[in-house]
Each structure stands twice: as C-alpha cells, then as structure tokens.
Design a protein around this nucleic acid. Structure first.
Lengths: 101, 101
DNA sequence: CTGCCCCGTCCGCTCACAGCAGACGCGGGG
DNA sequence: CCCCGCGTCTGCTGTGAGCGGACGGGGCAG
C-alpha cells in the first residue's frame, strides 16, 4: 500500500464536485453565482478549493445547482474514494447500509 | 412533499458524525482533541456545529479518530438522508454506482 | 468532610481569512 | 473600433476560526 499520496482535503473535493455538477448542468459560473447570491469571483475560488465556504454558502450553491447536501456529500465521498489508493472495506459496507435504508 | 423541515447544515451534520464516531470508539473529547492537535474547547464546538472547521482541522480530527474523509462524508450523507423528508431517487442511484466501482 | 484529577463547556480575545468590489484578459459579435 | 459575457486576479475589511483561562460537575482517595 503506497502512502505517497496524502488524502485530499475537503475544500478541494467539494470544489471539484461543485464545478462538476455545474458543468454537467451546462450552467455558467456567473449565472450560478447570481442564483446562489454569491459573487462570481467567490464561486470561482470555491470551485478551485481556495476558500473554506460556510455551511450556508454550500447550501446556497447547492440550491442554485438544483442539488442537495446529500448529493453533494455523496459526490465528495465518491471523489475521495477515486483518489484513495485502496478503498477501505468499511466504507463499502457503510454504502451498502445506506442502500438498505 | 412537506417543506416544513429545512435541510440541515454541513457543520451540524459533520459535528454529529464526529461525535458519533468518537463515542462509538469510546474516546474522550479531551483525548481526541489532544491526538488531533486541537483544543478541547474547539473540538467541543465543532461537535456541536458551532464552528466551521477548516479542511485541515477536519482531516486532523478524522485522523485522531482513525477514520478518513471518505467515511466521514459518507456518514454525513447518511445523516442527511435520515433527516430528509423523502430520499431523492438520484442519491440512491449514485450510491449504487459507488458500489459498482 | 476536603482535595485532586478528569471531563466537557463557557467566555473573551486576536489575527487570519471569508467574501466581495473593482479591474483585467480573453473570446465572440456587430 | 465598440460592446458584452465569461472566468480569474488583486486588494481590502469586518467577522469568525481557533484558543487560553475559567468554570461546574463527577469520581476517587485520604
């Protein structure tokens, strides 16, 4: 097991996920920022993982992208899994529990 | 679909998840804080959703609890699902995709 | 009973950063 | 040339992240 790649940080994964969703929906950064009630420069920074957005900001941008915190955190978890050298077996067990519920 | 319960915020869900994991492992707040390199008062505030911890702080506490950002965000997503009035069908599809990978 | 230790939370504080206004470069169209 | 929209850069200020000291509660020993 290689330990050469440290775990990515929350703000990076979140930013990647937000940009991913936005582009998937074909939305511009400027329009999304306006809908979320934040500045375009700030949304740009969020997406690039340069800032630690508050929970309210996260919720506002999620709303502007017609998604939810559930989807967002799941997407972040997926990205974290993709970047992990070996997926922990426990994480998969937890995911299957989520399906059972 | 009742819209009387707003979606919980990231910091609340995160805090609940951190406290849940810590108590599951039978660890004290003071010991966990020491291992994470944060003050006990700050960890207390984090767990109660009173503060917006930085990504590095989240990582440090996760490390102190012998867990990862993957597990953490999955746990948060689970809690968000539990508190959602009706689980979005899309979220479940994403989870099954995670299993397939 | 008192004193000590540990636990978790309250209160007040400082300085780094969250969030943004103005500016910039780029591409496209008239 | 101009205008518009896009996304990012730069600099700024007020706020809150993170913590030190203090506090109350519980448990234990003398």
């Amino acid at each position: 097991m290689a330990t050469t790649c440290p775990e990515p940080l929350w703000r990076h994964l979140l930013g990647d996920e937000l940009r991913g969703i936005r582009q998937e929906r074909g939305r511009t950064l400027t329009e999304t920022a306006r809908r979320a009630g934040v500045s375009p420069q700030y949304l740009s920074e969020m997406e690039r993982g340069l800032k630690e957005p508050s929970s309210e900001m996260i919720a506002a941008v999620a709303g502007a992208l017609d998604t939810s915190l559930v989807d967002l955190t799941l997407g972040v978890a997926e990205r974290a899994l993709e970047r992990a050298p070996a997926p922990p077996a426990q994480a998969e067990v937890r995911v299957s529990l989520t399906l059972a519920a």
